[in-house]
Design a protein around this nucleic acid. Structure first.
Length: 313
DNA sequence: AGCCAGGACAAGT
DNA sequence: ACTTGTCATGGC
């Protein structure tokens, strides 16, 4: 990866493996990034908060091996962004392994996974903060993505810390119509959500999930769930540890394992994936049929069914 | 009015 | 070990 300063601000990251920022940040794995109007010369732009920073990513039309980032210095970009963006992962090798596994399980060459991989080309599984991912996917239960985003936004505004937001100077409003000068907030610390109490969390329209969020905060604060130490566990033990939190079942735990801990063997099964499996695959096909990187396959299948075939918001 | 939304849980077979 | 009703809330 090369890092060069861009005239007029920002850093240009070059020599990257294939990445599409529009797909990566709008494929359902994260909830705090949104598309904004791209400035002249760019085809895609997303802005959101990660690690207490407001980051803006730009990408030019047809370019997949470089991007421009605002909101951090070169040292941070060098040290943190390759991990956050999942650049340290060989998607070509994963695709070959996935194809071989599903073909073997089916007994014929699977066109569905190949078309999905093509549609999802450039999607990178992010490595998000485990605590934020835990709470975000607790909120996702029996919920829809626009409302999940709104609840998380309200949660951050109520219990997070305000952060510096004028780092990119890119004019225009984002997709929600919010001015880009609107204050942004860090994700609330476990202590802040524990202090909020079930009542304070329910006031944000979290509904039946309020007690689950509170339980997660208490367990993390009390040390019963150590999210950093959990990184050292094998995937099945990681899933068990996560499911010790009330409101965290197999699907939510798998999302945390995949989207925060980079466990590409985790295969979250939601209503969309159930739909895909029923629609394109015989009865005996399951997550394990896609091999040790089934989570990547899951994201490709999800993306194509929901954003290409489904065509809804 | 009724159903659905990136589910999980408790109670009932 | 499986199936069913329930849980808040908002959009359609």
């Amino acid at each position: 990866m090369t890092i060069t300063e861009r005239a007029g601000g920002g850093l240009i990251l070059g020599g990257l493996p294939c990445i599409d920022i529009a797909k990566t940040f709008d494929c359902g794995q994260c909830f705090r990034f949104d598309p904004i109007d791209p400035p002249d010369g760019y085809a895609a732009a997303v802005r959101g908060v990660f690690d207490g920073r407001l980051l803006t990513f730009l990408q030019e039309e047809g370019v997949t091996d470089s991007l421009t980032v605002y909101g951090c210095d070169a040292g941070y970009a060098e040290r943190v962004l390759p991990v956050f963006l999942g650049l340290d992962f060989d998607y070509d090798a994963a695709a070959a392994d996935i194809f071989a596994n599903v073909d073997a399980a089916l007994g014929y060459e699977d066109g569905t996974i190949r078309r999905s991989a093509e549609a999802g080309c450039g999607i990178r599984i992010l490595r998000q903060d485990p605590w934020e991912t835990l709470i975000s996917f607790i909120i996702s239960a029996n919920n829809n993505i626009p409302r999940i985003k709104k609840i998380i936004r309200d949660l951050c505004a109520a219990y997070g810390e305000p952060i510096y937001t004028d780092a990119d100077g890119i004019p225009g409003n984002n997709a929600r119509g919010d001015a880009n000068t609107a204050p942004a907030y860090s994700f609330p610390a476990p202590e802040a959500l524990r202090a909020a109490g079930i009542g304070g969390l329910a006031a944000l329209k979290t509904g039946f999930r309020a007690k689950y969020i509170y339980d997660a905060a208490c367990r993390v604060c009390g040390g019963e769930l150590d999210l950093e130490a959990a990184a050292g566990l094998p995937t099945h033990e990681l899933l068990s540890a996560l499911q010790s939190v009330k409101g965290v079942g197999p699907k939510v735990a798998s999302c945390i394992a995949l989207f925060a801990y980079g466990r590409t063997d985790a295969f979250p099964v939601d209503v969309w994936i159930k739909r895909v499996l029923a629609k394109y695959y015989p009865e005996h096909i399951c997550g394990a049929s896609f091999g040790c990187h089934a989570g990547i396959a899951q994201q490709w299948l999800f993306y194509r069914e929901r954003y290409i075939n489904g065509g809804e918001k």
